[in-house]
Amino acid sequence: MKETESIDEFAGKISGLVNNLSDLGVTMEDDKQVKKLLDSVPDKFLHVIATIEQFFDLDTTPFDQTIGHLKAYEERIHKRDDQNEEHVLLTMEGSSGGGNRGCGKRKR
């Protein structure tokens, strides 16, 4: 998976490959799909992968459920990044305005 690729895009590729294999008469079970997925995502997902591996049985966890967990984490990352970006913009806006920058007494 590329760093710029979303979980949805990557899951679509895996599903497409599984369908192509199926057309050739090869069945790829959910557990193998899940393990391939978890082995292929970027390091930024390492925390959620460790959690999935710790709390779920990878032999019985459906592929779609694993995708859901990764998408939820990805959305949380994007939300946090958006909030941080908004905070930086507001901070920059506040510091670039004119106004009284000093802390001393105002002249009357």
Rank of each mutant, 00 (worst) to 15 (best):
F10G: 02
F56S: 08
A72I: 03
H69P: 02
E29K: 11
L24C: 06
F56A: 02
R108D: 13
L89H: 12
F63T: 08
G94W: 04
K35G: 02
I52G: 02
P62K: 00
R101Y: 13
R80G: 01
I14V: 14
I52C: 03
L38T: 02
Q65F: 04
G99L: 10
D57I: 01
G68N: 07
K105C: 04
A72P: 01
I67Q: 08
H78E: 14
L17Y: 05
T60P: 01
T51Q: 02
T91A: 14
A11D: 11
K13A: 09
Q65S: 12
S22Q: 11
G25H: 08
L17D: 00
H47A: 03
G98I: 11
E53F: 01
H78N: 12
N19Y: 06
F55Y: 06
D43R: 11
G104S: 15
D64T: 13
V41N: 10
D23L: 10
E3A: 14
G102D: 12
T91M: 14
G98F: 14
P42F: 10
D59V: 03
I52F: 01
G102M: 10
L17A: 03
M28S: 09
K2E: 08
L37P: 01
K44I: 13
H47E: 07
M92T: 14
D23Q: 15
R108S: 10
Q33H: 03
E9K: 10
E29R: 11
I14L: 07
T66Q: 02
G16Y: 09
P62Y: 00
V88R: 15
G98M: 12
N19P: 03
G97A: 14
T51I: 00
A72R: 00
T91K: 15
D39V: 09
G16W: 04
G102W: 09
N84Y: 07
D31Y: 14
G104Q: 12
E29N: 09
R76K: 13
L37W: 07
Y73T: 07
G16P: 00
G25E: 06
H87A: 15
E75F: 10
K32M: 08
A72C: 04
N19A: 15
Y73F: 13
N20H: 05
D59I: 01
L70C: 08
V18G: 05
E9S: 15
K71Y: 02
K32E: 13
K35V: 06
T66W: 03
N20F: 09
S6N: 09
R101L: 14
E85K: 08
M1K: 03
R80H: 06
I77W: 08
K71C: 02
K2W: 10
T4G: 09
R80M: 08
A50L: 04
D31A: 03
D59C: 04
G94L: 12
I14M: 07
L17M: 10
G25P: 05
L17Q: 00
K44A: 07
R76A: 09
I49P: 00
C103F: 13
D64H: 06
H69N: 03
F56I: 03
V48Q: 08
C103S: 14
G94T: 08
L58Y: 04
F45P: 12
E3K: 11
R80A: 06
T27N: 15
K2L: 09
E53D: 07
I49E: 05
G99R: 09
K2M: 07
Q65G: 01
G104C: 10
E75T: 03
Q54L: 00
E29M: 11
T60G: 01
D30G: 06
G98N: 09
Q65N: 07
